[in-house]
Nucleic acid binder design. Structure first.
Lengths: 108, 108
DNA sequence: CAGTATCCTATAGGATACTG
DNA sequence: CAGTATCCTATAGGATACTG
């Protein structure tokens, strides 16, 4: 996993939700737990919590807790988290091309 | 999966072996089945075959079969497959940074 | 509100034997 | 040589109920 930096990077984003979480945080700057859960249609609070923990461990996001009642917790991207965006843009551009080539080869 | 091109791209590379396969093919131009299996230490022929099939379906690699005895099959990257390399380079650069930040924050 | 605890299911990955 | 067939295991993901 740490023998190849590309693999290391992909591993951080692996899974069904992590990419989406990073994506949402890129658009929101700060977002609260329940608001994030609402945007990621279909994720359970358990899964969201687990994924957020992992992203925090990798220093991709930051968790800020306000000691209020009811509790308020805000998540945001670190500089490292923001820095992945250009790579994702490139991957997306390639993804469009890959998708189109599939469509051309297998028309309906 | 096809709602987001980034997700589409990541999905193609998902799994334990596909990235390594693409990486090997990037260095070899052409490679035979058993030679590839030898390089990917630990993969079974079943898994290798399955992964190659999937990459071929996504038009990332091409399978060329020579009707000889014993059989000879060579795999190589398509233009699409080669085109992903810059994205992987960028991801790798980010991966190094991410890895270093982990090391700094948690010294031993 | 922002989670945790518990239990369950689907599937990615693998081990082993075999084959045109 | 380049695979396929069969069966097994680990784990990612999820459903549901509960809580400081």
């Amino acid at each position: 996993m740490n023998d190849c930096p590309v693999k290391y990077a992909l591993n951080i984003l692996n899974g069904k939700w992590k990419l989406q979480i990073v994506w949402e945080l890129n658009q929101q700057e700060k977002i609260r737990f329940n608001e994030l859960q609402r945007r990621l249609k279909g994720i359970s609070s358990f899964m969201l919590s687990k994924n957020l923990d992992e992203l925090e461990q990798y220093r991709i996001i930051v968790r800020k807790q306000y000691n209020e009642v009811p509790p308020r917790v805000e998540y945001s991207l670190t500089e490292l988290g923001k820095a992945i965006h250009p790579s994702l843009e490139m991957l997306g551009a390639w993804g469009i091309r890959a998708f189109n080539e599939m469509q051309n080869q297998r028309p309906s």
